[in-house]
Design a protein around this nucleic acid. Structure first.
Lengths: 210, 210
DNA sequence: GTAGGATTGGATAGTCAAGTCCAGTCTGGG
DNA sequence: CCCAGACTGGACTTGACTATCCAATCCTAC
């Protein structure tokens, strides 16, 4: 219930911007590995190499810092995914997108899950502001997939009646669920199964050449 | 690092068993709604109508209580799912399983997500004991789905070469991912899209009658 | 009914995190 | 160079949570 206004997102000096970024980066890393509740501001302070007052100089409170972390992770993921999804022009390209996702999960044995998915699972129920931001990110992600599939319809790879919206939702659900299961099982089996089954289904809808 | 041994799971008196169950039930409910870290032992004490010492009489510490909650939720979910999955004998039966899952999510607007998925997302990275228990539950769940699909192969509904193992993993991933997205988006769109796409894919593999 | 273990109540120690305060240092425009 | 405002360091307050302790009460087997 603090009435203190949130500090501006971009500090006016170069040094200030660097400090703010260091704090967000350290917090994002810790929150990814240990959750928001499992990340104390003292831990962020040490990891970022700053002092307590810096954190509260740049952020109104821990919720405000968490907000910045959500924005940071959304930006990171979407900017990583966008180039891959913007060039979907064949089932082959879809498969290589799948490989990137699977490889990323495999590289860390499934640990961590999806940065957005983990944040959502922890925060969505109790914090409206977090849920809204995360829902928007998921929608943007799903929309990027949809646009990629739509391009495949446009270029004649997929039949015109393909429901790109539904398939993009299904693919994102498979990614999220596959990552949740990978986290517990330390295997990408479910992630691969989900994506492969859906891609096979999409392939069945491909326009048969000739 | 306490050296105190965990108390036995079943207290020797009727009253003791009832108290223990009340504590686990209250803790499961609170942890489902607010996460494990978001659930304090005082909150469990009040919700269960017991006093602090009861909790530590029946459980070695909060981790031990969390362990009991994981077991409770696994048991609850698997015993709810088992009857539906044991009778999968047609694509129609698969669709009604889908409806049960979707309706359950819709009834609470996606809030909460999957009790096991939420626990896993919060605990798997940091607590080996939790991850192992949750991985086992997910495996059992997936196996129940696989057995249902295998029955459909056996009775001739699905073609013999159907990969029931892979499809069961894909279905579970769709459920988990769909619930994660439902939690943020307050919509079962992704859950429905994932399950419907997979069921359509399975339907494509059904033995064509006649 | 009664002894002895099982169960219960509530106070409390010890720990740690969130957020505040203020004095001191840096930075950049004039 | 100089000053106003931006930035930094670290001690400190407050409050909550985990876990313990021990005396009192309740069961149940005998």
């Amino acid at each position: 219930m603090s009435t203190r206004a949130a500090p501006p997102e971009a500090p006016s000096t170069r040094k200030g911007r660097a400090t703010r970024e260091r704090i967000v980066g350290a917090a994002a890393d810790l929150m990814y590995r240990h959750g928001v509740a499992g990340t104390s501001t003292p831990a962020v302070r040490d990891a970022a190499g700053v002092s307590s007052s810096q954190i509260y100089h740049y952020f109104a409170d821990k919720d405000d810092l968490t907000r910045a972390v959500i924005a940071f992770q959304s930006e990171t993921i979407l900017s990583n995914q966008a180039p891959l999804l913007a060039t979907l022009d064949s089932v082959e390209a879809l498969r290589s997108w799948r490989d990137v996702v699977v490889d990323a999960a495999r590289r860390q044995n499934g640990a961590g899950g999806c940065p957005l998915g983990s944040l959502s699972s922890e925060l969505s129920d109790d914090h409206r502001w977090a849920r809204d931001a995360l829902a928007a990110s998921f929608t943007a992600w799903s929309e990027a997939i949809r646009a990629g599939l739509a391009a495949m319809v446009d270029n004649g790879t997929l039949r015109p009646e393909t429901d790109a919206t539904m398939l993009s939702r299904a693919l994102l659900a498979a990614v999220q669920g596959g990552l949740v299961l990978a986290q517990a099982q330390h295997t990408t089996d479910a992630l691969e199964a989900g994506l492969d089954a859906l891609i096979a289904h999409i392939h069945d809808h491909a326009v048969v050449p000739g």
